[in-house]
Amino acid sequence: MDNYRLGIFYGLGAYLLWGVLPIYWKLLQHVEAMEILANRFLWSAVFVFLLLLATGKLNIFMQETKAIFSTKKTACCMVLAAIMISFNWGIFIWAVEAGRIVETSMGYYISPLMNVLFGVVFLRERLAKLQIAAVSCAAVGIGVIIVHNGGLPWVALTLPLTFAFYGLLKKIIIAQPMTSILLETLLISPLAAGYLYYLSINEGTVYQSCDMNTLLLLAGAGAVTATPMLLFTACARKLPLNIVGFLQYISPSISLMIGVLIYGEPFTGTTATAFGCIWAGLALFIWSQIRR
């Protein structure tokens, strides 16, 4: 029972932090999204490296890194995973700054259904009737937006798509979470550092003109990135997957309320209809999991 309660505590911590993350990026709205992303990678690498150093797990990181890059397959998967997560993080930060938090929330509601679809396409898994109905409901919800807006809700589709690809690649890589996070951030960090250097000699980076608050927020990007991921890992080890599955809807629900109630983003009849279809799909998906 103690493990169960601890797992719930870790899970709530992870999903609450992910849920309020838009507020953090909104505090950096005066900084360009790409520059925030570059800082996120660099400071995440620093933060996780210090954690490994403090916990005496640097040797484990070295051993696992050697194993990952010992074969072409796992090395390529790690590089691709780093690219996928960079797209995911970048789109999310841009969308928050652009006042599209509601759309990011929709994307993370779609995410588990996208994973189901990936299971069919890439892992040849078979869908139960309820799961087919669940994916169909989400497709109808997206269709409502396409018909009304005359285009794809690309943020709501790209976020779960990149994260589903990321998850698929991570199935092939066997490594502890801190190893994985550090490797992914280290692989992108040279590009991030190069981008910041380019800005410094052309337009100028935020470091050349920012106040102390901005500097601290940028440095804190490493902690706000790694902390929920580590809490989630601890949660997943202590709880059954169906409980973890229920908890994952906390973060998009919080983000949705933040977008509508705090930042005044529109929640129109069309948006409500689309969300209704997606929620119906999720209800069917959850029911199929319970029945199994």
Score class of each variant (00 low, 15 high):
Asn39Pro: 05
Leu215Ala: 14
Leu241Trp: 07
Gly119His: 06
Trp94Glu: 09
Leu231His: 07
Leu231Lys: 04
Ser288Trp: 04
Leu37Glu: 03
Asn242Glu: 10
Met34Val: 13
Thr65Ala: 12
Glu64Pro: 05
Phe163Glu: 05
Arg292Pro: 08
Ile286Glu: 07
Ile23His: 08
Pro240Ser: 09
Leu127Gln: 05
Glu103Val: 02
Gly7Arg: 04
Gly90His: 13
Ser44Ala: 15
Val224Met: 02
Pro252Cys: 04
Gln131Cys: 07
Tyr24Met: 03
Leu37Val: 15
Ala45Glu: 00
Cys77Phe: 14
Tyr263Phe: 14
Gly245Lys: 07
Leu159Gly: 01
Pro22Trp: 06
Phe49Val: 05
Gly141Leu: 00
Tyr195Arg: 03
Tyr15Trp: 12
Ile254Trp: 02
Tyr263Thr: 05
Arg126Phe: 10
Leu230Asp: 06
Thr55Val: 04
Met257Val: 15
Met257Gln: 09
Ile110Gln: 01
Leu230Pro: 04
Leu159Asn: 03
Leu113Thr: 00
Met78Ile: 09
Cys210Gly: 10
Ala192Phe: 01
Thr162Arg: 03
Leu58Glu: 03
Gln248Thr: 09
Arg40Thr: 03
Ile286Asp: 02
Phe9Lys: 13
Pro22Ser: 07
Tyr10Gln: 08
Thr65Gln: 12
Phe118His: 00
Leu182Thr: 11
Gly222Pro: 00
Trp89Gln: 00
Phe41Gly: 00
Leu247Met: 11
Ala156His: 02
